[in-house]
């Protein structure tokens, strides 16, 4: 089965997310043994599509399906793909913190970070590698965005909390992280995904809640209901992140797992039951973070 990737995406927040749903509907309808993602006519790819396709492709591979990505080397986009290390992600294996910082220095003058597929295992070596990667990415974002104070703290917080969620809950082999900064538009898009068991199954496996649908599971997650034993001081990640981003920074927050999604901005929030065909077993979070310093924003008001 071949999926031809749309050649251009607008800056609209929801368009690439709608596109990822449509890709899933096409794949789930056929249940193919092999899928080719054809990027040969792609000119401008949204970070949400980059992470979405990476998550879907990895999910298919874990199901034993063959996945191929097709590029056309005669147009400029492949150099962008090379620069962001799509689809395999930047290889940080074996690097120390200092080496990562040095290697990533090349990205200081760019408007994106490399695609990162971070390890999720809790064994010491992988924990340290993940910790060093996320720390190095934070350092690069600080230099790219030239931010200080509350806004920088918020960006660190959002990335740390949402990548920790992948590690703590997903049982995914890897987590996926990518960010693209749009200086002329004064925002950055961040996308974090996994191809693990999904939010509903996480609650069911924990025995701490018994959601009967993906919408119900998402509602528990955005409320801050923990799946861990130490319930009272855990489970803050998604609930505080969405409030900090939308109420504090006036950004946009999107969460997708199973066949349900949640969206929140300053004006509205809703949990949406998606068509069954759009089902995705893992989890995906998309953030649009305004990068104009906002003096009214108090980081600590949203960290509980």
């Amino acid at each position: 089965m071949k999926i031809k990737i749309q050649n251009r995406f607008s800056y609209n927040f929801g368009e690439p997310l709608n596109y990822v749903f449509n890709v899933l509907i096409q794949i789930n309808a056929v249940n193919p043994t092999a899928v080719s993602f054809d990027f040969s006519e792609s000119k401008f790819i949204s970070p949400f599509v980059i992470v979405g396709i990476t998550a879907v492709a990895n999910s298919l591979k874990t199901q034993g399906k063959r996945v191929e990505l097709i590029f056309n080397k005669s147009i400029p986009v492949p150099s962008y793909f090379n620069a962001i290390h799509f689809p395999g992600g930047y290889n940080f294996e074996g690097m120390t913190s200092a080496e990562m910082n040095s290697k990533l220095e090349d990205y200081t003058s760019k408007t994106f970070i490399p695609l990162v597929l971070f390890p999720t295992s809790l064994i010491d070596r992988e924990s340290t590698l993940r910790e060093n990667i996320i720390s190095a990415i934070g350092s690069i974002l600080k230099k790219q965005l030239k931010l200080t104070g509350n806004l920088l703290q918020a960006i660190y917080y959002l990335i740390d909390e949402l990548t920790n969620n992948v590690t703590d809950h997903s049982e995914s082999e890897k987590g996926i992280l990518f960010a693209q900064f749009y200086p002329s538009k004064n925002y950055m898009d961040v996308c974090i995904a996994d191809f693990g068991r999904g939010i509903k199954q996480t609650y069911l496996d924990s025995g701490k809640a018994n959601p009967t649908s993906h919408e119900e599971a998402i509602e528990l997650a955005i409320k801050g209901r923990s799946t861990k034993n130490q319930t009272v001081s855990r489970g803050f990640g998604i609930s505080t992140s969405r409030r900090m981003l939308t109420e504090g920074l006036r950004g946009k927050f999107f969460l997708f797992s199973g066949n349900a999604m949640f969206y929140q901005n300053t004006e509205k929030q809703a949990i949406i039951e998606l068509p069954e065909g759009a089902h995705f077993k893992g989890c995906m979070v998309a953030l649009r973070i305004p990068t104009i310093p906002n003096t009214a924003f108090d980081f600590y008001k949203y960290t509980e």
Partner: peptide
Amino acid sequence: SDSAKNSLISREIAVA
């Protein structure tokens, strides 16, 4: 933490 790393993120690092 050594000077190359300026943030501490995971629970595992606290345990370590």
